[in-house]
Simulated scan of single mutants.
Amino acid sequence: MDVSASRVIPRPPEVVARYAMDWRHDHEWTQGIKRAELSTPAPGGGFGVGAEVTRTAHFLGKKIDYVLRVLAHDPPTLLEMKSVAGPFPMHVTYRFDPAPGGGTSASIRIRGDASRHYRLVGPLMARFVRANIRKDLRDLARHLS
């Protein structure tokens, strides 16, 4: 699975990224996330490359916990994470670039393979994830307006 979505948000990239890259806001704009916590700080402390965030979500009627490790953290442009624990491997990339005409072009890309755990819904998984990340971006824009 490799899905992405983008949306222009009428706020500067610094404002959008500051909010979206703060794990304490994950549950406010990310579909299904009920809780997020910084489970391992970055080597220099706080949030950055090497930090790990544990998210608790509800997905297809099940509660799941997964841990994302920060691979790249370059505010206000890029946040890249990969799962190191959870039901299936995934790689998540958030980008916040200046949009032509102003605002921020915000995008989310998710790559992963859920076929081992969600075999029956595998063919629908990409559509489901794409719909969710479109809603994430919609909710992100709403929280920043």
Rank of each mutant, 00 (worst) to 15 (best):
V3L: 00
S4R: 07
S4D: 01
A5N: 12
S6D: 12
R7I: 10
R7D: 05
R7S: 11
R7M: 10
R7W: 15
V8N: 03
V8M: 00
I9R: 15
I9G: 06
I9F: 15
I9Q: 14
P10C: 00
P10K: 02
R11W: 07
R11H: 08
P12L: 04
P12G: 00
P12K: 10
P13S: 00
P13V: 01
E14M: 00
V15H: 15
V15T: 15
V15N: 11
V16D: 13
A17W: 13
A17M: 10
A17E: 07
R18C: 14
Y19S: 10
A20T: 12
A20I: 08
A20D: 01
M21D: 12
M21I: 07
M21W: 10
M21S: 04
D22C: 05
D22V: 01
D22R: 02
W23K: 14
R24M: 04
R24G: 03
H25P: 01
D26G: 08
D26L: 15
H27T: 10
H27L: 05
E28K: 10
E28F: 03
W29Q: 05
W29H: 09
T30H: 08
T30A: 03
T30I: 14
Q31A: 08
Q31I: 13
I33P: 04
K34D: 08
K34N: 09
R35M: 01
R35T: 07
R35E: 08
A36P: 02
A36W: 08
E37D: 07
L38I: 13
L38P: 14
T40S: 10
P41F: 01
P41S: 01
A42W: 00
P43K: 11
G44T: 14
G45C: 09
G45W: 13
G46W: 05
G46T: 09
F47I: 15
F47P: 06
F47C: 06
G48C: 06
G48Q: 14
G48K: 13
V49S: 02
A51K: 14
E52G: 08
E52S: 06
V53Y: 04
V53G: 00
V53N: 02
V53Q: 01
T54I: 02
T54R: 09
T54S: 04
T54V: 07
R55S: 05
R55F: 02
R55D: 03
A57P: 04
H58A: 02
F59P: 04
F59S: 03
L60V: 07
G61I: 13
K63S: 11
I64S: 00
I64D: 01
D65A: 09
D65Y: 11
D65N: 11
D65E: 13
Y66N: 03
Y66I: 08
Y66T: 02
Y66M: 08
